[in-house]
Every structure is written in C-alpha cells, then in structure tokens.
Design a protein around this nucleic acid. Structure first.
Lengths: 234, 234
DNA sequence: TTACATACCGACCACCGGTCGGTAATCAAG
DNA sequence: CTTGATTACCGACCGGTGGTCGGTATGTAA
C-alpha cells in the first residue's frame, strides 16, 4: 500500500493544484473534498497537508495560478505605456484581451469553475483579488485623465465609475462562456457575433462612463479590433 | 432536559430565521452551524429539520425574508407608474431608495452579513435573486425607452448596460455600510456627505449609461433628493 | 556510513449536516 | 371526558468532513 514516490516539491504542488482545478470545474467548492483532491493527485492526506496548510489555501493558490499573470500584464501595460490617459487605458484593456486570447484554455477553466453552483467563494475571491490589483491603478489613471481633460469626471464619481469599468471587464467571462457553448454546439458564427457584440457594447459603455467624445470613443473601439475571441473547443 | 414548548409553526419558523440571521451577521456562512442555530433558537435539531429541509433552505429563507419586499416594491413602482421611460425608471430607483430608508435596520443587517468573510454564498444568492427579479423588467424598460427615443441605446448594448445599472444599485450597500461606520464613530457629517456623494455619482453614471441629455439627467437626479440616508445607529 | 532535513504516510479526532424512531402537545369527533 | 389522529418536537445516532500527528521512507552532504 505504500508506494511512496518522492517528487520535487514544486512538481507535487502543481500536481495537487491541477487536480484541485479539474475537480472544481466539475463540482462546487463545498462538494470538492480534500479526500477527493488527495485521490486525484495520488498523494496521502498527510502529504497534502505538508504542501498546503488548509483546504482554503488550495483555492487561494488556484486563483493565483489562474489569474496572476493576466492581472500583472494588464497593470504593466498601464504602467509602461506612454501617452495620454485614453491611450494608457486602451493599452490596459488591450493587454487584458491579448492575455485572454493567448491563454484561452485558462479563461475556459475560469469560466467552467465560475459556472458551477456553489463556487461563489472561489469567484468572490477571484474578483476580490482582481479588484485589489486593478482598482488603485485604474483610479489613479482616471483621476489623471480627468485632470488633464481627457476624461470628463468629477472626483466623487471616480470611485463608482471605476467599479463600473471593473464590473464590465470582470463579467466578460459570462459572455465568453456562452459563446463557447454555441461554438461547441456547432454555431461558430453565432458565437463570434455574440463576442463581437459584447466587445462593442463594452467599448461603447466604457466610453459613456468615462465621458468620452465621439472621436475618443472611436479611438478606444479601434484599439480592440482584431480580437478573434479565440473560440477554441476544449 | 425536555422542556418541550410548542409554538405556532410560523412563530417558530421566524424565531429560527431570526437566530440564523443574527449568527450570520457575526460569522461566515460556513462557520454558522446548524447546532449553533439550534442552540440560539432554543430548539432541538429534530425540531429544526421539521421546519427547514436543510441548512441551505434557511439561508434561502433569510434572503427572501430580507429582500423580497424591497424587490417587490421596486418592480411594482416600475409597473404601475405612468409616463415615459425616464419617469418610470426614476420611480423605480426612488422606490428602492424609499424602501431602504423605511427599512434601515433590514439594510443594516444585509450590510453586516455581506461584510462577513465567507458569506459569499449568501451574497451571491441574494444578488442572483435580485437580478432574477429586476433584470427582465429593466431590460424591457430600457428597450422601450430606446424605442420611444427617451434613452440612447442600441439593442446589443441593452443587456450589458442593464447589468451595469444593477451593479450600481446592488453595490450601494458598501457605501451605506461605510457611512454607517462613520456615523457610529461620531462623524455624522462625514457619513452624510459620503451618502450624498454616492447618490449623486449614481445619478450621473446612470444618466451616462442610459445616454441621457443634461436636462434628462437633472430630472433623474431631482427625483431622488431628500433621501436622508437614514443613518440610524444600531 | 552517518546524520540530518524533509517529503510523505495513514490512523485518528472533533465536529459537521442530516436521519429517524419515538414522545408529547393539540384538537376534532363521539 | 375520552379517543384517535395529527403534528411539533426531541436527541441519540450516522457517514463523512477538514485537519492532526507520531512515525517512516527518501534524498543529500560530510
């Protein structure tokens, strides 16, 4: 009974993470059990708790594993881009889009997990994590944009407006998931239209929230053309 | 050990609900145990399961208990008000506001529960419940408003736009909770300013999302003056 | 070889949500 | 005032959960 196979800690850790991620895509977090993860990862309970301090810690790690690189690249785009606030905002949004199409399978996993009933804790923390990373940067950007006259926004509006922008970006996965469903069901045209409509609506609404002029709105929308939606089946 | 006190089922039910609500305001849902509810409500486990089919059913009932009347009054305002889409939308928002100030202690409970870590399942379902009730009505309203020329909105934008409006309304509790904290800490002026700023920002952002003219936006903002925020200590 | 750190094991624990056979209160009918 | 059916309620009990811990195997460096 004791085939004991020693693995480099990092490999074991990511094996556990992979097992947990897959289980989460099938059940809600409360019905994903440590025993289940342990079985799927082919390790003992003791081994599991050697690598993770609690069941919750696994979820936290899964979230970081799935989202960290995307958030980082978006914030980095915002920080490194030169130009006015609109240009930087466009770079920020585009970076997120690029990440989504480059890591389509990751996005797909997130969508599958978030679609499961009972995964509210997962999605809540994912969102918390994202907001924690993105909100300060966006607030600063919007403030700067308002100061330089690029955006039309009073100081008191900035907070709620940024929350709206974040909500818009973070709720995109629902549409993506819906489109994936159509694509898998043999309606790729419909899928593409849904994604295109969504992105257009996002651009238009972001422009309204930020108080952009027609010309500015067009420039924002332009920055995100060519995004295929990467509707690969999985 | 067996002081058996029989109560009218409804009274017992609401006693259990009250106990559960109070416990939820202190712990997250996963650390609120049936035994805890049972102790607080002074009933046995068997008695508990005579009135509720599961732990989850209690949460569902708590949600309905807290939110149903507010949602109903908002939708009713939308349905019964005569006039153009802007008037009806204003009535809808105002009805929600009125309910919030009339039932300040209920709002306070919601805020306290939602602020607890680990209550994502509660808040997720509350939000689901609210969206389920409000979204169809709002979508129809916005469509009608766009058709009659009151709002400026393409068909594909309507869905995401309504989601934005709902997010704006459903995230108000955060600000309210923050303001309550200030009020309780002896800074009622600051509290009032926070609430006033928030409501102004909401009006402005809703106007932008709906594509209202200056005059329309002013009319929308006017409909919600006089809301005191009802910052009663609890 | 030896000595030490660490990856890993699995029996064990307290406690959880939920079940069930039984008991006591209530009330309508005779 | 009985009787009998109904229902509110009780608490011992169950399978399974997340988490612990003393112990064992494995790798590494002297």
């Amino acid at each position: 009974m004791s085939l004991r196979r020693r693995m480099p800690p990092e490999a074991r850790r990511s094996a556990i993470l992979a097992a947990a991620t897959e289980l989460m895509a099938g059940h809600g977090w409360d019905t994903v059990t440590v025993s289940g993860i342990v079985d799927a990862a082919e390790i003992s309970k003791g081994g599991f708790y050697h690598h993770f301090s609690s069941k919750d810690a696994v979820m936290e790690a899964v979230i970081r594993d799935l989202a960290a690189s995307g958030l980082d690249s978006a914030v980095r785009a915002l920080d490194t881009t030169e130009g006015d606030a609109l240009k930087r905002f466009t770079a920020f949004v585009t970076a997120g889009l690029d990440w989504e199409s480059a890591r389509a399978e990751t996005l797909d996993q997130i969508a599958r997990i978030a679609a499961q009933r009972g995964n509210d804790p997962f999605f809540g923390r994912l969102q918390e994590n994202a907001i924690e990373h993105l909100r300060p940067a966006l607030v600063a950007l919007v403030r700067a944009g308002a100061a330089e006259g690029t955006f039309s926004m009073s100081d008191a509006e900035t907070g709620p407006a940024v929350d709206l922008l974040l909500h818009l970006l973070l709720s995109r996965w629902r549409t993506i998931a819906e489109a994936r469903g159509h694509a898998r069901a043999g309606a790729p045209d419909r899928a593409k239209r849904i994604v295109a409509d969504r992105l257009n609506a996002e651009s238009a609404l972001m422009a309204r929230v930020l108080g952009l002029t027609e010309a500015q709105a067009a420039s924002l929308a332009e920055g995100r053309t060519g995004y295929a939606g990467s509707l690969s089946a999985s």
